[in-house]
Write a protein that binds this DNA or RNA. Structure first.
Lengths: 231, 231, 231, 231
DNA sequence: CATGAATGAGAGTTCATTCAT
DNA sequence: GATGAATGAACTCTCATTCAT
């Protein structure tokens, strides 16, 4: 009834995320004084435990038991906060979409920029976010693979997120074409697909080879390749 | 010893694969005359059933029952040919790697080409193969996501395959740089990563949006972007 | 010791019960002045919430959470008053037995009546009570089904209650036979079983088909059938 | 696919049922020679194990593990035959309804009888069946309590079964009234409710007190009471 | 060559119960 | 007097795997 279901922490910040990642696998429980602190803490630990595991092993291969262990709880403890595994994932995706797509777009729309500047700003914002919260972005990319062509709720949710991303690119390119900023013969939809393809591919490659890869250099290549295609 | 395990058909050809795709969901059993034919037939049907399902739903979400149904067999029948689900996948990956990476490279090495020509030939060969056997290539790409950062045998196998792909690109670029064919400042490893990233991203996007996308156009963009980066 | 366990309200009256039924599903909390009032109030709300749910869904299918929600409390709040779900049920059965069997019998014994008059009075009293507190009676009948042939405490308790009912009927019939008021060949035990059977069956049918059934008519049939059998 | 789900044994006969009941709790596995025998045997053991447990403890309180243990199988073994616990119950109810209601009615309709004779025949057939297969009938009666006022599939199924029983009684009484065979003032629907009520009540009482009760005598009382009410 | 029966481990989920606050 | 967090056991159901036939 009054259990705190369905309102996963909105308080997660990149700092916290980064910190959590550097801790060891089973989070320590810092004996919080108040109930409120204890709740926020548990929610947070569940969120990060799930995030890490979903990215590492995939959503379907991650068990609630593993999430619980990573959060220093038992299965039942996790279910005190989430009503369904699917909902946990859905909320994670919603939050990520909000911060990685919607917030970024909103911020760009708020500024007065040319089409080209907006595209570049979009790329930079996404890259910055990915540098701060790599797992969040990876969750998106990897889920888009794990759930492609299924028919559950999560598939739809992910499709919608990607659609928003494509739409922004398409609209910006169309505007750029109208203003003669871009002069490519490429259809805007194809260009958006190329953006998404490069985005996903780079994230994957970066995740797979973080140790051996020079992130900034890859990003620079990404930008040049994409803008090159548009000119 | 009760069965011919571990020797999945090497005889699969792209034609067959393409044909299989256009057939109905449950393969018919055409009453083959000899035992040998019957065996090869079953192996074939298992292979294609598994391939289709692995790509559609992912390896871990595909049950032996589903594979069997798709092959017109029962679970036990499938286990007559495969010893473990993992082995089935391993053999599929081996075969795909052989045809999609090794054979392609071997053929290119056999011809006398400049570094640039070799790169272009590589891209074209991969794209041609992907057009003929899209599921095979998708299996590779999607598995590389599903199994990233795990520690099973399949993860290692996939890593090795990708390593071979990267190695060819790196060596070719290095040769091109030595011969002054390429003049990029980009580190060959970064360029190879960009190749792999774009490759995977494009395949994913193509698979996700086959209906809405102009494949050839995307491929052309791919080639131009990549070569642009190298010059 | 932390709480006034094991002393569920004896103050419940049929009026209250009837009133509660006509209220909305989640009882309101009327901010009682004193602690005592508050306690009695919560106890009352728990009692009625549980009663309604046990009858609707059965004891085992009703969760403490549901009871708590119906009483406007949380799980923990309910456990402040009850020590075990089983005890809550046990106390409900005790109270119902007291009012539906013992009080009724005591009142009849207090009057000077012939055997036949006593039987009729018993039937009428039970029917009147059932009309006022249908849920209480249904709890008894339905529990006798849910717990038949188990071996927990509740099973025993219900058996005892039914035994008291049968015993009264048997003794009254025996007396009536001795006084030549009844002249049936039927064994008193069989007649008592027939009484109980008809009682339970009618209550069930009435509950199942309250909307389509003419209660008073069913009751009249009950009385006539039973007395007919005895003459 | 080809698993034998959803076709629970039609071969169960009263003899077998009676025999099974007299065996000890965990059925022995008689090492059947053929697959077919083994299947029928397992299905049979599951059916009887479930029937016994459902009647003893109720459907919801019976776990698949208990059913499996009673059938000499493991949980997985039971699930090889049933797809869902709910389906197992549904099939049991269907079979019971077929034999206890439909077959009985069909047989009576086939004979040329007066309304009164048909009612008596109906009662006798039901009683005979109950003497041979008491657990089957008890399952019906007890389920009607366990599932009253729920909204699942089983509730609807049980309602339909009871409706068929009521309908036969109503139609027969209406015919009897038309032919002046019955002269009661009682509404046919009320009479049917009385029939059902007495039926259920008697079955319950008989089940609860089989040891102490003279079954035939109770049945005779049932018939006389019911016919008395109609005259 | 293949089936069908069966196992056992583990998944997601629910819930009575405890307890610090 | 009551809350909210948490546990642990039990439940339904799935699935890779084995094996007699």
């Amino acid at each position: 009834m009054r259990s705190p279901r369905n309102d996963l922490s909105k308080t997660l910040t990149p700092k916290k995320a980064a910190k959590a990642k550097s801790q060891r696998s089973v989070a320590q429980k810092p004996k919080p004084r108040t109930n409120r602190e204890s709740r926020e803490d548990s929610v947070d630990r569940i969120y990060h435990s799930a995030l890490r595991l979903f990215v590492q092993q995939g959503y379907r291969s991650t068990s609630i038991d593993q999430i619980a262990a990573g959060a220093g709880l038992t299965k039942g403890g996790v279910y005190f906060y989430i009503s369904k595994k699917e909902h946990l994932m859905a909320q994670m995706l919603d939050e990520i979409a909000g911060r990685y797509i919607d917030a970024v777009i909103a911020e760009i729309e708020a500024r007065k920029l040319t089409a080209q500047e907006r595209l570049v700003a979009f790329m930079h914002s996404q890259v910055s976010f990915a540098l701060e919260c790599p797992e969040e972005v990876m969750l998106l990319v990897m889920s888009s693979v794990e759930f492609s062509k299924s028919d559950d709720m999560l598939t739809k949710k992910i499709d919608v997120i990607y659609e928003r991303m494509r739409k922004f690119v398409v609209q910006t390119i169309e505007e750029g074409l109208a203003n003669k900023v871009f002069k490519t013969k490429l259809h805007p939809y194809a260009a958006a697909s190329f953006y998404v393809a490069t985005h996903d591919g780079m994230m994957l490659e970066w995740y797979r080879r973080a140790a051996q890869i020079d992130g900034p250099e890859l990003v620079r290549v990404f930008r040049e390749a994409f803008l090159g295609v548009l000119s």
